[in-house]
Design a protein around this nucleic acid. Structure first.
Length: 135
DNA sequence: GCTATGACAAGGA
DNA sequence: CTCCTTGCCATAG
């Protein structure tokens, strides 16, 4: 459903989301807000979800490794279902409860400095991200 | 350029 | 724990 406008405007966030999500290691998860943070848009969590919902069927990325920050699978308005995502996560060794929740802090992908540097983020911002998601 | 729409997040009741 | 409210902002029309 997501299409580029004839004006040639490039949806930057979409490209960032594709890159970031494709680099999430199997067996780990991140939150929508976390993806937004890495993309350099701290408050664009909702847009990340929206984009995934419109890309999942057409772009080959591990969309199922993105859940909400409370550890709940919150897929909606997609060709895929809550169960689809649950099964995909379980196939990667992640334990998901029947109510489609999981221990996000246990499985959260915590990137190191070199990972963040691929996104050309300011050093101070990288430091913030490291501390934000440390255990 | 303006409005509606969210696979969100965080805090309060 | 479960709602509910508010803030949020990129996209689509």
């Amino acid at each position: 459903m997501v299409e580029y406008t004839s004006t040639g405007a490039v949806p930057k966030l979409k490209d960032q989301v594709i890159t970031i999500v494709s680099w999430i290691p199997s067996g780990t998860v991140v939150s929508y807000g976390q993806v937004a943070l890495i993309a350099g848009m701290p408050r664009a969590a909702r847009q990340v979800g929206w984009l995934l919902g419109h890309m999942a069927e057409t772009v080959n990325i591990p969309w199922w490794r993105v859940i909400n920050n409370s550890g709940r699978i919150s897929i909606k308005n997609s060709d895929f279902t809550l169960l689809d995502q649950k099964v995909r996560l379980e196939n990667e060794g992640i334990k998901v409860s029947n109510d489609c929740t999981l221990n996000i802090e246990k499985y959260r992908f915590r990137p190191n400095k070199s990972f963040y540097k691929r996104f050309q983020l300011p050093t101070t911002y990288i430091t913030y991200l490291i501390t934000r998601y440390q255990l």
